[in-house]
Simulated assay, not measured.
Amino acid sequence: MRYSIAKALSLLIILSIWACGFSTEKRRPKRIQDTLEERVVKKVSEAEIINKTTQLGDSITQVVGAVFMSKISKEYARGGYEAAAKYCSMNAYPLTDSLADQYKVFLKRVSNKNRNPINTPSDIEKNILEAFEYSSERGDEIGANVQFIRPGDTILYNKPIKIPSKLCLNCHGTKNQISKEVQAILKKEYPNDKAINYEVGDLRGMWSLKFLKKEIVQKL
Rank of each mutant, 00 (worst) to 15 (best):
I5G: 00
I185V: 13
D123Q: 11
D153A: 02
C20S: 15
Q218E: 15
V146S: 00
K30R: 07
Y103G: 01
K30W: 04
V217A: 05
G201R: 15
G139R: 09
A144Q: 09
N127K: 13
R31V: 14
K126C: 10
V40N: 00
R39Y: 02
I185G: 05
Q62S: 14
A6P: 03
S70E: 05
Q218I: 06
K7N: 08
S122G: 04
V217W: 13
L156M: 11
K188V: 06
N112H: 15
Q62V: 09
L9S: 12
S136Q: 05
N192K: 06
Q102K: 15
N170L: 11
M69V: 11
S111T: 01
G201C: 14
G65S: 12
E189Y: 12
N176G: 15
A84V: 13
A85H: 08
L209D: 06
N91V: 10
E130W: 15
V146C: 00
L212C: 02
L36V: 01
C88P: 03
S59P: 01
L95Q: 01
R109H: 14
R138D: 03
V182Y: 04
L15W: 07
R115W: 00
W207F: 14
T35V: 09
I142C: 04
R115I: 01
A77I: 12
K210F: 07
R150F: 05
I178Y: 01
Q62M: 13
I60V: 13
K26T: 14
K219A: 12
A131H: 11
